[in-house]
Design a binder for these strands. Structure first.
Lengths: 364, 364
DNA sequence: TCAAGATGATAATACGTATTATCATCTTGA
DNA sequence: TCAAGATGATAATACGTATTATCATCTTGA
């Protein structure tokens, strides 16, 4: 059995009413001031120990105030505190789709995990901007009555971010950070992205070293910056390694057949979720992976798929991107000196699908 | 190419500095007032449509103000509104553990899905209370400087909710809704829960109808309300059906052996995540499920496990619970007449593990 | 022609805290 | 004996919004 002495004391009865029921007033610094015979300012100063810069309060006065604070259980109203401050420590999180997807485990989950982790560490709260009206399945950032300015600013999450939205964020000077690199939008965009070009290049070089002389990139290579970055890295590295290279728009049988017919011996998949489609196609054609054909996955699947192959490729540092996005955000609003356009290294994974090029098939 | 006339005005440059960088000020009602040539009070009145009680503002003045609001994208500072005791359509979401778990797909995900879905529908934003300090792996709701009141109130998520926290929420009159039934805490607790007793009873009755005469509940049956509710339903239904019943504390081999030795022919698992442990034990003992022993899972697994069996039992309406939690919340703060203690029916699942009792083993 | 009512808007204040400039009093030293 | 410095504390103000009492001006009607 739990007993409690006199309940909570940091609520004062309103007026001098009879007793318990009805609304109670918070204890305020004014109350403490009255009790200990000082001014509200003094209470605030003692409470926050701001006795450094010029202001002095006698030790025994301090003690009186502290006693009153202890006796009443006074706690400063965080709301009023925030008001007196410049920022609310509320970070908006904007996503074009639901943060909690109804589908299976989600590509964005690790980013959010990193965000939450860092928010916890930095003592701020995350405001999921769920009030944004939905239009064609996508939330709209700047619809009439947009509440994006409720927060101190926001973190942007999404494979593809609307260009107009970005421009407007920049133009309005709303503090924000994109998770994932973004092209300039009427001004530089703060971001924490993955360094795709470097990661892709490393894999291309590895393929070249393994004797592959003709390789293909499978995917759009444009649209979202993350696609464009991959393709850019692919081309630059292939050119540098003296390897012939091309691009296939989709992981469909026809273009894949054509590529193989032209002597391609390694496929670099922009979208790792395409792995099952490609392996199914390869099996159907009697092609062994990696004996006949090497496979490289450029990142993590954005759609839920189950892949039983140990595919060569790299992992996007999603959790760390989420974490650092908040760091950059605070640097922004605090005007701290720091790099607000960061590319984090991806982690390479050897896997079992990138093997020496089959002999006697080049230039076939 | 997009051109833009004169930029956006939502953030006012501090002083008349050169350009982009540096701290920026929120647009305030004073700014709107200046722009539209009225007083701050007028802006507030127009913004909140407080034109009923005595105060009158000319239609065209209103329009000027509204135009300025639209042009600047002004949104009232939620903190200042809270200080004046206003709501912001911001719902706090408090969880004792991270909302985005680092582990696998999560028991709480469907609740959050429902919450987000309804938030989107109702046009409110969800504030993840990530700022709460962590103590012993659990977030603390009322630590010093708790920011729970930044939100209009909150939704509580968690298997077990701290009793003191609940009491304090009630005592302070903070609007809140628990997802999951809670016992009174110095006052009735608003909740949207699952109707465990009814669901469990239905399964007990089914077992009785299939000839089971001795059944056992596996689990704590106390602690979290959801456990207690299950056990209560179990006992009541078993008694009513004239079936002998008992309880096993954990799904360990020893107590399970004992139960079988005493003639138990059906196990009701409080924690469906225990299914693998129980089936492994059964296999080891050469017991066939369900020929020798029936198995019933009372709900959904709270820990990630893979279950390949089609287990009889029921499903907790988690998504719907999340949805309705928000409904109840708004009913609370709007003072609407509605049931604020709701139990939603669980969905029964026949499965393949609840079969007729084996013959000749009762009272063995 | 002027009192009463209608119309339109604002000044003043509150919410609770943080900070800074200012003030009153005491002490010190020559 | 009094100027300068030290000591101790406060008044005033800001943060951004909501609300109420009050005010100025116009309209109406007899």
């Amino acid at each position: 059995m739990i007993t409690r002495t006199s309940g909570y004391t940091h609520y004062m009865p309103v007026e001098k009413g009879p007793a318990v029921t009805g609304p109670r007033r918070r204890v305020t610094q004014r109350d403490i001031a009255r009790i200990s015979g000082v001014s509200q300012a003094t209470v605030s100063l003692v409470l926050n120990n701001r006795l450094d810069g010029g202001v002095r309060i006698a030790a025994e006065t301090q003690q009186r105030v502290l006693d009153a604070i202890r006796d009443t259980g006074y706690v400063a109203d965080p709301i009023a505190r925030r008001l007196a401050d410049q920022y609310n420590r509320i970070i908006g999180v904007f996503t074009y789709e639901p943060v909690f997807p109804s589908g299976a485990r989600d590509f964005f989950h690790p980013f959010l995990l990193g965000l939450e982790e860092q928010a916890e560490r930095l003592g701020c709260d995350l405001l999921l901007l769920t009030s944004a009206p939905v239009d064609g399945g996508r939330r709209r950032m700047f619809a009439d009555g947009s509440r994006i300015r409720l927060a101190d600013g926001c973190v942007l999450l999404g494979q593809e971010v609307d260009r107009g939205d970005l421009e407007r964020l920049v133009a309005e000077g709303i503090p924000f950070v994109s998770v994932g690199r973004r092209d300039d939008a009427g001004g530089p965009v703060p971001y924490v992205g993955a360094d795709y070009p470097v990661a892709v290049a490393a894999l291309v070089e590895r393929a070249a070293a393994l004797g592959h002389r003709r390789i293909a990139y499978v995917g759009r290579g444009e649209g979202p910056e993350s696609y464009a970055d991959r393709l850019r890295g692919f081309r630059a590295a292939a050119a540098k390694a003296g390897v012939e290279y091309g691009r296939i728009g989709t992981a469909a049988a026809e273009p894949l057949d054509a590529a193989v017919a032209e002597g391609v011996t390694a496929l670099f998949l922009e979208e790792p979720a395409d792995v099952p489609a490609v392996t199914a196609w390869a099996a159907e054609r009697g092609l062994d992976v990696p004996a006949d054909l090497s496979l490289v996955a450029l990142g993590d699947p954005t759609r839920p798929v189950s892949i039983d192959l140990d595919v060569a490729g790299f992992t996007i540092p999603r959790r760390e991107m989420g974490r650092q996005a908040l760091d950059v955000f605070f640097a922004l609003i605090e005007g701290a000196e720091t790099n607000v356009q960061r590319l984090l290294p991806c982690e390479l994974h050897d896997g079992a699908t990138l093997a020496p090029a089959p002999t006697g098939r080049n230039n076939s």
